[in-house]
Simulated scan of single mutants.
Amino acid sequence: MDAVLVLNADLGPLHRVPIKHAIRMLMRQVAEIHEAEPDRLIGIFPVPRVLRLVRYVVTRWRYTHGPAWSKGAVLRRDGHRCGYRAAPATTVDHVLPRSRGGRNTWQNTVGACYACNQRKANLTPAEAGMRLLRQPTVPSWSNMMQR
């Protein structure tokens, strides 16, 4: 178990934290265990899978702004699958290349395997004779929490 899901007091997902951080939250009594590993303890605490905050945290900003763009987040959004063929994605490809004004945005980037990224090079998918298997989209917060 590498991360613990943290829920708001209304059971809405907030983020994931490392197990050490989760234990500190329990010790400070800012969270309670919502779901735990059966028959496993860390000191006096069951090993948590899911924590629920004791007090509600206002998160209006989550609804006005989507998750921040990053290469790791793009790979997570795409399930670590290449956007051009059925292969594991190890890098991120810009649909409109950066040299032509393409930006680091959710709608302009897809996960790609090394071979497809090299083949497409500094071209658009149409120019390279490649077809995107799915259109890149801005993920929701809940989609990013599940991956």
Rank of each mutant, 00 (worst) to 15 (best):
R60S: 14
V58Q: 12
R55S: 14
P67E: 05
G72S: 05
A86T: 14
S99L: 09
V92E: 05
T59F: 11
V50H: 10
G72F: 01
V92I: 13
D78W: 12
R100F: 14
A86W: 04
Y56F: 14
A89T: 06
H65M: 03
R49D: 06
H94S: 10
P88G: 04
T90Y: 03
V50D: 11
S70E: 05
P48C: 05
V92A: 08
A89L: 06
R49N: 14
L75D: 07
R60Y: 06
A87H: 06
P67C: 08
A68Q: 14
T90Q: 05
A68E: 14
G83S: 10
G72K: 10
L96W: 06
Y56A: 03
T91G: 13
D93K: 12
L96S: 06
R55E: 15
R76S: 01
V95C: 05
W69H: 00
V54L: 13
R76D: 00
P88H: 02
A73V: 03
Y84A: 04
K71Q: 13
L96Q: 15
V95P: 01
P46H: 13
T90S: 08
V47C: 11
R76G: 02
R81T: 03
D93H: 14
H94V: 08
V92W: 12
P97A: 06
A73F: 00
P46Y: 07
A89S: 10
P88F: 02
R60T: 06
V95W: 01
A68D: 10
A87K: 12
G79H: 04
V50F: 07
F45C: 08
G83M: 05
C82P: 04
W61P: 00
P48W: 13
P46A: 14
K71N: 09
T90K: 03
P67K: 10
T59C: 10
G66H: 07
R81P: 03
G72W: 00
W61E: 03
G66I: 08
P97D: 12
R62C: 00
G72E: 04
A87M: 08
P97N: 09
T90L: 05
P97R: 02
P97I: 10
V58P: 04
P88W: 03
R52E: 05
G101Y: 03
C82K: 02
P48D: 09
W69M: 00
W61Q: 07
T90M: 01
